[in-house]
Design a protein around this nucleic acid. Structure first.
Length: 502
RNA sequence: UCCCCGAUAGCUCAAUGGUAGAGCACCCGGCUGUUAACCGGGUUGUUGUAGGUUCGAGUCCUACUCGGGGAGCCA
């Protein structure tokens, strides 16, 4: 009886006969030779069946297996660079658990709607497999970081009472006949908890009914929110910086093969080192008005416009080449695929050409007092090669609980952390208003009812201290670290506007 | 809420207003080192829905539905 092992451990069994249990990822046959690419959850391995070496029954059974058939393969392990994992199995026996047929996700191209409808199967594909492993490591890193640094986990409620910010983006739920809402944050609750434990965090799903159909939005996403007592803005920034560095380094250390599979530029991640840049909101506003930004966007626009012309010409040439008489089928096929890719890029570039003038206008006309828009954040982030903290926003565009700045009462002690490469805001946080009177004043400005927040106000009555924290969005962090274009691949089953299946 | 794009075979896409096609998937055959293997043969259709224009609509027009991208808003 051969030893049962996994593909990840094949290196420990070179020369031995072992059994792998997995699924057929792809297969190729060449007469008396069969190549079965098998995956088992730990990796991919090419199993080679030679007709003369394998049992006749095994060879015949393996010849007719559909994609994703479940099987055991027994054979001798040998190192071979031609196999995906670097080790190959010279198979002698194949036991079919189930011969699957008609698996919908083929090794060829598919559209995103089809893939999302088949998300339960799409998991099995290499890229998706790699992304969710990176997510696992980032989530593990988050828990590890806080648990090892003296933070106590506080699970905050998901059913939340009506009071709160941005009521139009809340999902309402019937709670024994009363309307309650799915939580958008556990923040107020961790503030209470940090007065008991000093350093706490909550980690769970949050829900936002934003009608946003973009590559950065989910209606259900995961957020970790640490909160610390006796902390000011600098302490909160230091914590955010340390956490992000920890997560990036851990992922680089433990998921390098996955990042490489995803084609991530690792140098960009290696560059994520302390100290991150720190600028104030007012400095950001100056940057947006600067000649440097105008030039950056002018160059972007010129580049996008030139690329549009180039792509159109390229597509025309390829189309001519494809439809020319006497073109080989495989060549025409390849050209058709290249045309599709070019078409996608053209759509992106044309979108850029339409949007950049808007972005220029938004940046140039940016008024002190307004919130930074998505395009503004992208501009700021692009001017820096490491993450950037933007601090001290006007208090009018931020939540009531943020601490008013002592030196400049127009602004609050808050922070946003912008990830590089246009990934936008991954962290938002602040020092909290610990003065009861100031807090009440802000609540009145926002039209919030004191009685709804009676418990929260108690925290300022009984031993108030400077404190603060932040929220880090897991999916945006995963998208950034993996270098993904779209957030939907960073969570097992994405919940988005208009998508709730499977 | 607004703007742009799209919907044709199981999948990815073709089709000057004039007989709906290709590749992949699937089935059969060939090939002892393949890498989205390749070669030969076979099977595959209510062109998103409802109207309209026309001798004739996948193609043009209107509305709707669904999806993609973006704006606003946001992690």
């Amino acid at each position: 009886m051969a030893t049962v092992t996994t593909i990840a451990k094949l290196g420990e069994h070179v020369g031995e006969t072992v059994t792998l249990r997995g699924w057929l990822y792809n297969s190729r046959s060449s007469g008396k030779l069969l190549f079965l690419v098998v995956r088992d959850g730990t990796g991919l391995c090419q199993c080679v069946l030679e007709k003369s070496e394998a049992t006749a029954a095994a060879f015949e059974a393996a010849r007719h297996l559909g994609q994703e058939s479940s099987l055991h393969v027994t054979g001798t392990v040998r190192a071979d660079p031609r196999s995906p994992g670097g080790h190959e199995l010279a198979a002698t026996d194949v036991h079919v658990v189930q011969n699957a047929s008609g698996y919908p996700i083929t090794p060829k191209a598919h559209g995103i709607d089809f893939l999302m409808k088949n998300r339960h199967l799409w998991f099995r594909s290499q890229r998706q497999w790699a992304i969710l492993r990176v997510r696992h490591t980032i989530v593990e890193g988050i828990r590890e970081y806080f648990n090892r640094n003296g933070f106590i986990l506080i699970d905050t409620p998901i059913f939340a009472p009506a009071a709160g910010e941005g009521a139009q983006t809340l999902f309402a739920v019937d709670y024994f006949g009363e309307p309650v809402y799915l939580a958008q944050t556990g923040q107020l609750y961790v503030e209470a908890a940090c007065m008991a434990h000093g350093k706490v965090y909550c980690f769970g799903p949050t829900f936002r009914a934003e009608k946003s159909k973009t590559r950065r939005h989910l209606t259900e996403f995961w957020m970790v929110e640490p909160e610390i007592a006796y902390a000011d803005l600098d302490d909160v920034c230091a914590l955010a910086e340390d956490l992000v560095c920890y997560l990036v380094q851990k992922t680089l250390r433990e998921r390098r093969p996955e990042l490489e599979l995803l084609g991530r530029d690792l140098a960009k991640l290696e560059a994520v080192q302390k100290p991150f840049y720190r600028i104030t909101y007012s400095q950001a506003a100056e940057i947006l008005h600067s000649e440097r930004v105008r030039q950056l966007l002018t160059d972007d626009l010129a580049r996008a416009a030139a690329r549009v012309v180039e792509l159109k010409k390229l597509m025309e040439e390829k189309e001519q080449e494809r439809t020319a008489p006497g073109v080989k089928e495989w060549k025409a096929d390849k050209l058709a695929h290249e045309l599709l890719e070019a078409r996608d890029e053209l759509a992106d570039q044309e979108e850029a050409v339409r949007n950049i003038p808007k972005h220029m206008e938004l940046a140039a006309n940016f008024q002190w007092g307004g919130d930074l828009g998505g395009s503004d954040e992208t501009i700021i982030a692009r001017l820096h090669d490491r993450p950037v903290f933007v601090t001290h926003y006007p208090r009018g565009c931020k939540a009531f609980y943020m601490k008013r700045n002592a030196a400049d009462p127009r602004v609050v002690n808050n922070l946003d952390l912008l990830a590089p490469e246009g990934y936008g805001e991954i962290i938002g946080g602040s020092q909290r208003e610990d003065d009861l009177e100031m807090l009440l004043e802000r609540m009145r400005e926002e039209g919030l009812k004191e009685e709804d927040y009676a418990w929260y106000l108690d925290l300022r009555r009984y031993g108030t201290v400077p404190h603060g924290g932040f929220g880090l969005g897991v999916e945006r962090t995963v998208a950034w670290i993996c270098g993904l274009k779209h957030i939907r691949e960073t969570i097992p089953f994405a919940r988005m506007m208009g998508r709730i299946y499977p």
